[in-house]
Structures are given as structure tokens and as C-alpha cells.
Design a protein around this nucleic acid. Structure first.
Lengths: 203, 203
DNA sequence: TGACAAATAGAACATTTGTTCTATACCATG
DNA sequence: CATGGTATAGAACAAATGTTCTATTTGTCA
């Protein structure tokens, strides 16, 4: 992105601050007033410069029609909670999404993430409780020892991942549950959805 | 807060969505258009109702002058991470705040919250790991069995809380650590900061 | 020095946007 | 049945806001 002059930076900062405080952007006149400009055109000019450099979006003719970066639809900002995944569906198909967590994507350090709510105590030795939301970074590869979300038939499971030459082993973090072993030709469909990068617990 | 009629809820949702998508609130006419209202007054009326019930703020005379609930400066929206607490300081004094978690206050169901990052394994049987952020709702009372954040001298500690007639007992969730007992006249200063209502783990 | 971008001023004008007043209809509740 | 909250329509008007055009100043860079 092109660099900003110091004045332009000040203007951008004002826009961001104003927006954070009021919930809507300032008018051109408010901008003028804040900086003591005596001409509307001065403010207008700065807005156009900022737009040309890609820092903001100006919507001609609309009052307070300024879009600042970071303004995206809620559904693109929050982490979706995925329930049962219909066979063949992409993970993030709307049909699979039960809810959203009020947490910015990116908070956990990855943009393509989803969450699953854990049921049962099969991961208790990894300090994952019944009801916890586990944050999964979407990727189809995993390293040994990763906690992965895997899709077995149309069920999402959370397990430790291990692989040897000719088999994949999924282990629970609870000795009560036996490991799941997949060899070539296993009739169950199997797919890695992603690896665990975080956890959220309410209560 | 007063309850909303279903129509009012729809309007509020539209306001929130519109704002998230564009970065500024809609005009009354845009509201009309979206819902197919044929009179400006219909939209105007809904805005006033929502304001009366405390869900939004309308700024008379200002174009797109609607402030939605989540519109506050970042520092007022995010959960502060508190480190060491200087003696006598209020918990949320700036001096005590190390960082912010990119999570809306209120996500965990309480407005006055803070987070502490857990060190050590003293709460491991409660499925709380070294490095986890524990979300604390600020209050100076606790019930037996609550996990509380307590200030002992100027150190923040996380423990199970129990009290009997004449003593307070703080237990770890790890048999390795002995309980802490407070009786009247204990030379250490003691204060409950709040109770645990959530947890966030990265990695 | 000439060219050019950044910054600013002033003013007229066109649009967009909010306000207010008057009415009507429906529904629940006492 | 009267009352009050919710929901809606229509219209005239007032205020807020964006647009555009013309100029001037200043500093940088070739």
C-alpha cells in the first residue's frame, strides 16, 4: 500500500477514532471542523487521497459514506461453529454452521478456522472438557501429535493424530477409549478437517 | 433491558448487519427500502422505539446518526489481560493491564471482566493448562466450589473457593499443592477479585 | 527554473437525509 | 368498549451533507 503523508495519517487516525467512538464515520464538515480547515474541499481532498491510496472507501453521494478497513460482514469476522457435516459438503457450507462465536477470526492466528463443540470426555487428558469449543485451523495435513478434527463418515471427531507407513492412528486423550486405526481400504470415509489451534470455554 | 417485538428485533439485526458490512449505519430511507416500508415514518418510528428501549442511540439531525451497542473504543470492548496487581490499585487500572484479548466483553455473558494468564499446573485437574487465559467476572463474593481469582498480597491466584464459619480455604486442582487457609488475623492481605466464567487457550 | 504533488480557501449548487404532522389499522388488556 | 402499544402510509419541509469549479501557496525534485 502506498505511503501516507503525515497529514493523511492524521486524517485516517481521526476517521478511525471517530468511528470507534460514535459508531459511524464523520461528515466532511466534521472533518473540517476537527482540523480547523476553512474549506470543505480540503477535507474532501484528503478523503479522495486516502481512497486513491487504498486506505478507505468513499461512497459518493452518501452522507458519512466512508468505509474503513476492517469493515466486513459479521459472518466473515466471526468463527463459525460447525455441527454435523453433511457428506460431501464443504466444511463451511451454511448448512453445517450452527452458530458463531463472538471472536474475531485471526485472534487465534489463522483466518480459515471453525469451531466444534466437544461432546464427552474423550479428550480430558488434553484438558478439553465436555462443552468446550475447540478452534480448528482448516488444513488437510497434520503432523504426528497434533490434535486434529477429522471427519469419519459424516461425524466430526477430535483426536490425537499419528501415522505410520501404512496406517493412520487416532488416539483419544482418555485411556477409557481405544484408538481408531485406519488402514488402506477401510470402508469408512476419512478426512482431516484441520488441526486444533485454540480452545474457548464458557462457564 | 426491555424486550423487543419481533419486528423490532429484525430492524435491530438489519442495523447491525448493515453496519458490519458497510462500516456505517443505514439512513432511514435505506431502512425503509430494505423492509419495503412505504413511509419514512415507519422506519423513523422503529428507530425511536429501539432507542426508547435502550438498544441503540439516535443522534437527531445527523445523517446515519445511529450508534449501535458494540460501538465503543476498542479498549472498552475487549477483555483486558491483567498481570501483577499493584497493591491498593483498582484491578483495571491501566498499570495492571498487559494486553487485550480480541474478544468482545459480553461474549462470556458479563460486562465487567478481565483475564489472567495461568502459570503452572496448579489447576490442571480443572482442565486449566499453563498458558491458558482464564476469564474472570469481577465480583467480591463467591460461592463454595467456584473457581476464584484472588489477590493475596499483590499476587493473583486462581483457586477453588471454600469457606467455613471461621476460615476461608483455597484449593488447587492438583493434589501436589496444599490448600491455602485464611483465618481471622492472617497477616497476608486477601481479596476476591472475581469468579471464573470462561477460558481461552491459544495453541 | 519548471513541473508537480500536497495542502488549503471560497462559494454556489445539488442531493441526501432527518423531522413532523396527520391518519388508519390491528391487537391485547383491563 | 376504551386504552395503549405496535405498525403503517403520505406529504411537506427543514437541515445536513456531498460535489464541483476556481484559485493560491508551499515544498520537492529533476
Amino acid at each position: 500500500m502506498e505511503n501516507l503523508s503525515s497529514k493523511q495519517e492524521q486524517v485516517l487516525k481521526f476517521l478511525v477514532d471517530f468511528n470507534a467512538e460514535h459508531g459511524f464515520p464523520p461528515t466532511i464538515r466534521e472533518l473540517c471542523h476537527y482540523f480547523g480547515f476553512k474549506s470543505l474541499n480540503t477535507a474532501h481532498f484528503h478523503l479522495r487521497s486516502l481512497e486513491k491510496k487504498g486506505y478507505i472507501q468513499v461512497h459518493p453521494g452518501k452522507g458519512r459514506g466512508i468505509t474503513l478497513p476492517g469493515a466486513r460482514p459479521l459472518s466473515e469476522r466471526q468463527i463459525p461453529v460447525v455441527g454435523r457435516i453433511a457428506a460431501g459438503m464443504p466444511i463451511l457450507a451454511l448448512e453445517n454452521i450452527e452458530d458463531f462465536l463472538g471472536i474475531d477470526k485471526g485472534f487465534f492466528g489463522a483466518e480459515t478456522t471453525f469451531a466444534v463443540q466437544v461432546r464427552g470426555d474423550s479428550m480430558k487428558d488434553a484438558h478439553i472438557q465436555d462443552g468446550d469449543y475447540v478452534i480448528i485451523k482448516i488444513q488437510d495435513q497434520a503432523e504426528k501429535g497434533d490434535i486434529v478434527a477429522a471427519l469419519i463418515d459424516d461425524e466430526v471427531t477430535l483426536k490425537y493424530f499419528y501415522r505410520t507407513k501404512n496406517q493412520i492412528r487416532l488416539e483419544s486423550a482418555n485411556p477409557k477409549y481405544p484408538p481408531l486405526i485406519f488402514r488402506k481400504g477401510d470402508p469408512r470415509s476419512f478426512r482431516i478437517l484441520g488441526i486444533m489451534i485454540g480452545l474457548v470455554r464458557k462457564r
